[in-house]
Write a protein that binds this DNA or RNA. Structure first.
Lengths: 212, 212
DNA sequence: ACCTGAACACCGTTCAAGT
DNA sequence: ACCTGAACACCGTTCAAGT
């Protein structure tokens, strides 16, 4: 359950599925299918087909389709966090904040199908997907850490860092969704300008925000 | 297509489906199903069953399932906008802004399944759902109008109202999604405090925001 | 003009059976 | 221990046929 993917057995690595790490292979194929053909192509049977196993085989590794999707979502959160960390390294203050925001938005725009799955209704309730819950909380924690650094640098006010982290994440997530949905396209300014405006509003707002 | 629902014919209003307004009835039943049993219960066949018609009947009124879901989403946007307008009436400035924010969040929390459909992947691309696109743009326009009023009252700075409207909507939408998903529950403060913090950050941020 | 019945090609999931 | 084959109960969608 919570144990990470079982290490592949020593021995012949080819014809892997019958004795190797089918679980990891299924997740990989699921991500590939999702990227190539979209959410509606992400079927348990299709993933099994892509992996070259029978339609019943995935049930030895995932309780149901939701659990597979949860694994796909978790992979997405891991990669998102990695790319935010990478883009923040070496920068500080406002520059770092905007770097993280840009990394977030770039990830979503370059992986729209995966991003949607990460926030889709299938994995909305993470109560019975503890691993996914942990990973997504870790992203929130990372943002909160960044907020605390900004507070220590005196760039934003003294409020609750977790509230501000939620606000920041909410803003980025909402912007991405509205943009992906096309709700803002055509009527609002192009995305780079929106990102500028949004990061400015957030930095200003958090600088002036006082606890109640 | 773009014409609104055909008015019911004059005459006997009972046994309505066979000569009355099946299209509207299908949307109503779809919303009921969605509320009562969730998104996965929202099937074309189930809706037809609820309406007492054959499984093929809906295809006389909707091109496919997506178009039905689009109609459900549109109904949601209409009711959302109505409740925001209602809650803003008679208030101004900061109080009005917070009233709209609370109306938005209340709607989402009280209609979670519909809210998810409104922003779900099925209706993500509104290019071939022009009516839905118009309705969702109208919501954005309403928010932009509110921003302009706040600008005229001198409560927020002179930036592009549409950018600020997108930022405001993004923040509300993101907050709602993170909360519905449970991503913030347990680690972040309770929702009323978050709403306080978020509206404060937005008002402050937009007050200080200068055009680039 | 609108609806039904039957069919097709898919799903998710289960379960006995194989190796 | 892991996988297959066959089956069940569902879908979305189409199409000839009914009234």
């Amino acid at each position: 359950m919570s144990k990470p993917t079982k290490a592949a057995r020593k021995g012949r690595p080819s014809r892997a599925y019958h004795h190797g790490d089918l679980k990891a292979a299924l997740v990989t194929h699921a991500i590939e299918l999702l990227r190539a053909e979209g959410l509606e192509a992400l079927t348990l049977r299709g993933v099994a087909r892509a992996a070259g196993v029978s339609q019943a085989a995935p049930y030895r590794h995932f309780a149901d389709k939701r659990e597979l999707i949860g694994a796909v979502a978790e992979d997405g959160f891991r990669r998102l966090q990695a790319s935010m960390i990478e883009r923040m390294s070496g920068k500080e203050g406002r520059t770092g904040f905007k770097g993280v925001a840009l990394a977030y938005i770039d990830f979503a725009l370059q992986n729209p199908a995966e991003y949607r799955v990460m926030f889709g209704p299938e994995v909305a309730n993470t109560e019975d997907l503890p691993s996914l819950r942990g990973t997504s909380r870790s992203v929130l924690g990372f943002v909160a850490q960044g907020i605390e650094q900004l507070q220590q640098a005196g760039l934003i006010g003294p409020g609750n860092p977790m509230s501000m982290a939620v606000a920041t994440w909410a803003m980025l997530h909402g912007l991405v969704m509205l943009w992906l949905d096309g709700a803002a396209q055509g009527v609002a300014p192009p995305l780079p300008e929106l990102v500028d405006e949004v990061t400015r509003i957030m930095m200003f707002g958090m600088a002036g925000s006082r606890p109640a």
